[in-house]
Design a protein around this nucleic acid. Structure first.
Lengths: 146, 146
DNA sequence: GGAATGTCCATGCAAGTGCAACTACTTAGC
DNA sequence: GCTAAGTAGTTGCACTTGCATGGACATTCC
């Protein structure tokens, strides 16, 4: 296999650094206000948008490890943001619904999260550069095997 | 503050997803061969390139948290890849040197790491797209305050 | 020179993560 | 129907991380 070109290495380091800085900033902003981390938002949003979901579907959508999602859901249920309802078609699994508080929490998180994203991305790039970036990243946002 | 535009949100999700997938793949590849994680490589390379370094300089270069670097260095010293030498100019700090094994480890890690990068980035993007990506990410790879 | 403030690095504790192994249910093959 | 293999989800254990704090030295200001 060929070694990476210099431009590839530069893109590599910047990709990791940019994503790390950006996600750190968001997480810190939410934490500073006593709000849950971004992963929680992603779960809440996925269920609000698409209706009750099974853990394995969330796992596929969000790209998290199976055990990580298991424990994440556990914490969110303990925090009363989600409820588990046994799945009639498959007794191994269950459906996750939002509670009232879960819905409220998503709504409360959004403005903070959105502002953090705007600070980190929107305010630092032209709109057309954002579009170009999204375009370039499209193939990389799919699992490697694909 | 303005809410993020749709293109901003798309860029956001893809940036995080792409970086996560890419770094996960690299870490997993190294781990599968019993090699240390990528952060270790970054430390080893920084010292090999620029000579002995103080923790605070590594911290700035690599963008890690202070306590994270402190413990990372600790693990690497225990693994005999680095040695601490008291700093004559500032008794609070010390200089980190590579050991023979440290040098050997960096050399052993590079082909694996490089191949993983090539798999994740080089093989999935045209060279000019890599260059464009690096260009677009340049502003985002700097701390938010800057 | 001495106090106040700042910088450098370490660490206790609580929480999160990775790996591997496990239970429980489902599906396929026969 | 029975076994074998696959899928859904959990969990024990060791390790890592985040936050807050602390100790040690350096610098500034008087």
């Amino acid at each position: 296999m060929a070694m990476p070109a210099a431009t590839t290495l530069l893109a590599w380091t910047r990709l990791l650094r940019a994503a790390d800085l950006a996600s750190q900033h968001c997480a810190a902003t939410l934490r500073a206000l006593g709000l849950p981390p971004p992963e929680w938002y992603d779960v809440l949003l996925a269920i609000e948008r698409r209706g009750a979901q099974r853990p394995r579907d969330l796992q596929a959508m969000l790209g998290t490890e199976q055990y990580a999602l298991s424990r994440l859901v556990d914490r969110m249920v303990k925090a009363r943001l989600l409820t588990r309802v046994p799945c009639t078609e498959d007794a191994r699994g269950y459906l996750l619904y939002l509670t009232i508080e879960g819905r409220a929490m998503r709504a409360a998180m959004w403005p903070i999260y959105a502002e953090a994203i705007e600070t980190v991305l929107g305010a630092r790039m032209e709109d057309e550069d954002c579009a170009a970036l999204a375009q370039l990243l499209a193939p990389l946002a799919e699992p490697v095997s694909a």
